[in-house]
């Protein structure tokens, strides 16, 4: 009995073996890219599976000394920040009445956002291109890409935040109402701070989605306004003979999203739980 209690919920050797295999399969391609960046094309051709010998810094130096890379990184950052702020603010505002109000069109309205999940950018890509470039005159600008991206991030944001806001304890609202607070006051001073973990979650999701987006930037952005994914894709086709250079460029482009995730990991996981501790 004592032995069972000790091993209960822990892993045997098999569990560790599976875990190790998962780690190898998951990180293998990423490590291949990172290590490949330290090698020369000649090394890569001679032995694809080898380690860098000698370790070369010139591929990474080349990327970091490339002003285009920094331009792409700046574009990606600004676009992702605008997308995130717009999507989270508009999203939490919409989710609030859908969670805390009773009204006749509540479920149909929520369904609008659920259905919004279904509108892939691809369906609307050509009209969207015409709208942004010809009608709004925002072609090849930060806002021109960020606003449609925020619109496409809204359904996810609302769908994740609604149960979050629903789970807030009713006592908070009740007490505030007795004290005479307005619903908008309750929203700003109570619902918003209390749902902060959820906001961080949807914020990180919106940021990462924008950071990683490809299709919409592919059609809307050219030249100096390109974002990192476009830059990586174009670099890899333009320099297809320079495998090591492509791997170095790709690896450096991975770092910002990875760092953001590592920094925010706890908040993402706790946010996804969607429950208020109390």
């Amino acid at each position: 009995m004592a032995g069972r209690a000790r091993t209960y919920g822990r892993g045997g050797p098999l569990v560790y073996l599976v875990a190790l295999a998962v780690v190898a399969l998951t990180l293998g391609p990423v490590l291949y890219g990172a290590l490949g960046g330290f090698r020369s094309n000649e090394q890569l051709a001679r032995d694809p599976a080898g380690l860098p010998d000698p370790w070369l810094l010139r591929n990474y130096e080349g990327v970091l000394g490339n002003p285009e890379f920094w331009r792409y990184a700046l574009n990606s950052t600004v676009v992702a920040l605008i997308t995130t702020v717009v999507a989270v603010l508009a999203g939490v505002m919409a989710a609030y009445p859908l969670a805390r109000y009773q009204f006749r069109f509540r479920e149909p309205l929520f369904l609008v956002f659920v259905l919004g999940l279904l509108f892939p950018a691809a369906v609307a890509i050509v009209p969207l291109f015409i709208l942004v470039t010809r009608d709004l005159q925002l072609g090849n600008t930060w806002w021109g890409i960020a606003l449609p991206q925020a619109a496409f991030a809204l359904p996810t944001t609302v769908v994740i935040l609604r149960p979050f806001l629903m789970a807030l304890p009713k006592e908070v609202e009740e007490a505030a109402m007795i004290d005479g607070a307005s619903r908008i006051g309750i929203f700003w001073r109570m619902a918003l701070p209390l749902s902060m973990p959820g906001l961080v979650t949807v914020g990180v999701l919106a940021f990462v989605a924008s950071w990683n987006a490809y299709l919409l930037p592919l059609l809307l952005l050219q030249g100096d306004m390109r974002t990192l994914p476009l830059g990586v894709a174009d670099y890899s086709t333009e320099h297809s003979a320079d495998t090591a250079g492509v791997l170095a460029f790709t690896t450096i482009a991975m770092i910002p999203a990875l760092m953001l995730f590592l920094a925010m990991q706890r908040r993402i996981v706790s946010g996804l739980q969607g429950a208020v501790k109390g």
Partner: peptide
């Protein structure tokens, strides 16, 4: 009015950048 205030920005963004282009398509 409160409900309208809360959902208007989201609905406006969705209408302009999601629904309109889809109808346009």
């Amino acid at each position: 009015l409160e409900i309208l205030f809360f959902v208007a920005p989201a609905l406006a963004l969705m209408a302009l950048f999601v629904v309109y282009p889809v109808f346009s398509a």
